Simulated assay, not measured.
Amino acid sequence: MKPVGFSRRMTCVEMSRIKSGVAAWLLGLLVSSPALAVECRDISFEGNDFTICEADAQTEEIRLFLNGPEGALYGHFSAIAAQLATQDARLSFAMNGGMYHDDRSPVGHYVEDRQEQMRVIPNAGPGNFGLLPNGIFCIREDRADVIETLDYVDTAPDCLHATQSGPMLVIDGELHPRFLPDSTSRYIRNGVGTDPDGRRVVFAISNDAVTFHEFGRLFREELDVANALFLDGNISRLYAPQLDRSDFGWRLGPIIGIVERN
């Protein structure tokens, strides 16, 4: 029998077993812990500050919100979060999701839960929305795509949710042809970009007032997406609880959100 207080140096084999056990325990924690539905970060690009949030459309529930179950306008991120809480779910990300009229109805095409609430507007018009080409953010069962409006009309994708806005920021890897490097029109702006496989979805909001040219370059050169769509400017807002951020202001129209189900 060893006396009380006896100690000895561990052998290399014992140390190896302990290290292997700790490594397996840590790996088990990583595997069993749920992955974040969306990853957000703050970045700087060419002297401007932005917040970027990325999601995987194959694994996350990306959707649109406009009116609640009783038909009342959501208007604020907090109203959506409160409604989801009654369904044992949570809002893990949100952003204003397209231009709207004074009554908060969508300016362009809008589909929610496969129900079309506003038709496609294919023609040019006043303001940023009518600065063609514009586009549509289409969310399907296992992918999400930014699609130029006329291509959308030609292909007629089966979207669970869709919102039209404009102008396009990036079109097949190229900046919108009307963007000017020396523009003096600066606003807080937000938008969304997608990869060709429809899996990677990147949302961005500027924390400085930026031009369309600067915002488009962010998506094309820093975020490296093939297609990107301007969602709105000036009223742009973000809900990102992982960054302790919940922007507040006037009531919004369409809102893009990511839902986590328990």
Rank of each mutant, 00 (worst) to 15 (best):
16 S>N: 06
16 S>G: 10
16 S>W: 11
17 R>K: 12
18 I>M: 12
19 K>H: 11
19 K>N: 09
20 S>A: 14
23 A>Y: 09
23 A>R: 07
26 L>A: 15
26 L>C: 14
28 G>E: 11
29 L>K: 09
31 V>E: 09
31 V>K: 09
34 P>M: 11
35 A>Y: 05
37 A>K: 01
37 A>H: 03
38 V>C: 13
38 V>K: 05
39 E>C: 04
39 E>A: 12
42 D>F: 08
42 D>A: 11
42 D>Q: 11
44 S>K: 13
44 S>C: 01
44 S>T: 14
44 S>D: 13
45 F>C: 06
46 E>K: 13
46 E>W: 01
47 G>P: 00
48 N>L: 08
49 D>C: 03
50 F>Y: 15
52 I>T: 05
52 I>S: 04
52 I>W: 08
52 I>E: 07
54 E>V: 13
54 E>Y: 03
55 A>W: 03
56 D>Y: 03
57 A>E: 04
58 Q>P: 02
59 T>G: 06
59 T>D: 01
60 E>L: 00
62 I>W: 00
63 R>G: 10
63 R>I: 07
64 L>K: 03
64 L>R: 05
65 F>E: 09
68 G>C: 06
69 P>I: 14
70 E>C: 06
70 E>M: 11
71 G>S: 10
71 G>I: 04
71 G>D: 14
71 G>M: 08
73 L>Q: 13
75 G>W: 01
76 H>F: 02
77 F>I: 02
77 F>E: 02
78 S>N: 01
79 A>W: 00
79 A>E: 07
80 I>R: 00
81 A>V: 00
81 A>C: 02
82 A>S: 12
83 Q>G: 05
83 Q>S: 14
85 A>M: 11
85 A>T: 14
86 T>Y: 07
86 T>E: 15
88 D>T: 09
88 D>R: 13
89 A>D: 10
91 L>A: 02
91 L>N: 02
93 F>C: 04
93 F>R: 00
93 F>T: 04
98 G>Q: 05
98 G>Y: 02
98 G>C: 08
101 H>C: 07
101 H>W: 06
101 H>Q: 14
102 D>S: 15
102 D>R: 07
103 D>V: 06
103 D>Q: 09
105 S>R: 09
106 P>M: 05
107 V>A: 03
107 V>Y: 08
108 G>I: 12
108 G>Y: 03
109 H>G: 06
110 Y>C: 05
112 E>C: 11
112 E>T: 15
112 E>P: 01
113 D>M: 11
113 D>N: 13
